[in-house]
């Protein structure tokens, strides 16, 4: 872990400081709502444009939106089901296995102070 932990947000790089907005209370909700609004707008646009897909179902209004939403939900629940069956401890393949070990620190920049270009 880096010893150069900036004491306050002021030490952060400019871009980083700008991005801290997302962690402010309420920002998440704002983002979520913005996304919802954007989706709604897309649905409206979808109504307006003409579509000539290879399959008829593609031309159905909001098909992609519904498909995308359902797909995502399927993925999440499918993954949860899979986790139920496939989950193992990290030392399942033995204490020496690759899954168990941390990346050797001497090959990272963590222990080296001044290798930054």
């Amino acid at each position: 872990m880096s010893d150069h932990r900036p004491a306050t947000d002021d030490d952060l790089p400019a871009l980083g400081r700008l991005l801290t907005w997302v962690d402010r209370p309420g920002s998440g909700t704002k983002l979520f709502r913005a996304l919802g609004g954007f989706c709604a707008a897309l649905l409206v646009i979808d109504l307006l444009i003409s579509k000539h897909g290879h399959f008829h179902i593609e031309d159905v209004w909001a098909f992609y939106g519904v498909y995308g939403f359902l797909s995502f939900v399927c993925v999440i629940y499918g993954a949860k089901t899979l986790r139920f069956f496939a989950k193992r401890n990290e030392d399942y393949y033995g204490a020496q296995a690759i899954d168990r070990e941390d990346y050797p620190l001497d090959q990272t920049g963590v222990t080296k102070e001044a290798d930054d270009a």
Partner: peptide
């Protein structure tokens, strides 16, 4: 059609993520 379709797909998936995560 393609752009909107793709955006619909992705944004609604994002929306689903938002819902599930929250």
């Amino acid at each position: 059609a393609h752009v909107v379709g793709q955006l619909l797909l992705l944004c609604f998936a994002l929306l689903a993520f938002g819902v599930l995560y929250r």
